[in-house]
């Protein structure tokens, strides 16, 4: 199967502090990949180096066979991104933010429909700053999907969402994945990872300490429960 995201031996340090250390991974078309680890393990740095918003010290990255730094404008026609730190103009309304995003792409999807799907259809006239945390999080997932992307990067996917909204988001993402969308996500919720991800990679202090499927993680750690397995493998468990 075609590799949509390919990372080889990616390394980046902030000064003397290594943030990611020789991380390699590959994500196939139509699958979901979860990058896991504690805060500060290097998840966001990895995503930013893959997207080219940070320059890696060494290693190779290709997304849809393109180099994100050299072919930025071509690549991001086909890639949607939701960053962990959400950002918008101070006075902007939901509809304006969606329009402004949609106008950047050649064939965007109907953002009103997406807002409906994600349960914020009645909020399009409101200022973004007046939304609740959960609504804003859903809005930023909508923005990542507006380009009709082939691959979407979601950093801390459902932080701030209530249980029902999370289920709703998972359902939509699963449908999109069945339609061929490739998903790259980070999350702190292991139920979410188990529900969505075909493959995972666990980072610990910038190194990949586990790479495989959820079932393999359970098997390797000897734990029935995936969260227990994650804690054991990532070295976070208190024994």
């Amino acid at each position: 199967m075609e590799e949509v995201v390919k990372v080889e031996s990616l390394t980046k340090a902030y000064g003397a502090l290594p943030a990611i250390d020789h991380v390699s991974l590959s994500v196939k078309r139509g699958t979901a990949f979860g990058l896991l680890g504690a805060n500060g393990a290097g998840k966001s740095t990895t995503i930013e180096c893959i997207l080219g918003t940070k320059r890696a010290d060494s290693g190779n990255v290709s997304v849809l066979t393109l180099d994100p730094r050299k072919d930025r404008r071509r690549l991001f026609q086909k890639v949607g991104v939701q960053f962990q730190e959400c950002d918008y103009q101070p006075e902007i309304k939901v509809s304006e933010l969606c329009e402004e995003t949609a106008c950047l792409y050649k064939s965007p999807v109907d953002w009103r429909e997406l807002c409906e799907q994600f349960g914020i259809g009645d909020k399009t006239g409101s200022p973004v700053k007046s939304l609740s945390d959960g609504e804003r999080q859903r809005l930023f997932i909508v923005l990542a999907l507006i380009p009709k992307p082939q691959v979407v990067f979601l950093d801390e996917l459902t932080t701030g969402l209530d249980a029902r909204a999370r289920r709703g988001v998972w359902k939509i993402l699963k449908e999109l994945k069945d339609g061929g969308l490739t998903i790259f996500l980070t999350s702190h919720f292991m139920d979410e990872v188990e529900a969505l991800c075909d493959e995972i990679c666990i980072l610990q202090k910038g190194r990949a300490v586990f790479y495989g499927t959820v079932a393999q993680a359970k098997e390797k750690s000897g734990c029935e429960n995936f969260e227990d397995a994650y804690l054991k493998l990532s070295g976070e468990g208190i024994e």
Partner: peptide, 17 residues
């Protein structure tokens, strides 16, 4: 301000020049 608020960073991962 757009740079500091990371509005530009959002534009960076879109096709705009």
């Amino acid at each position: 301000e757009y740079r500091e608020r990371k509005v530009l960073k959002r534009f960076q991962v879109t096709p705009i020049s």
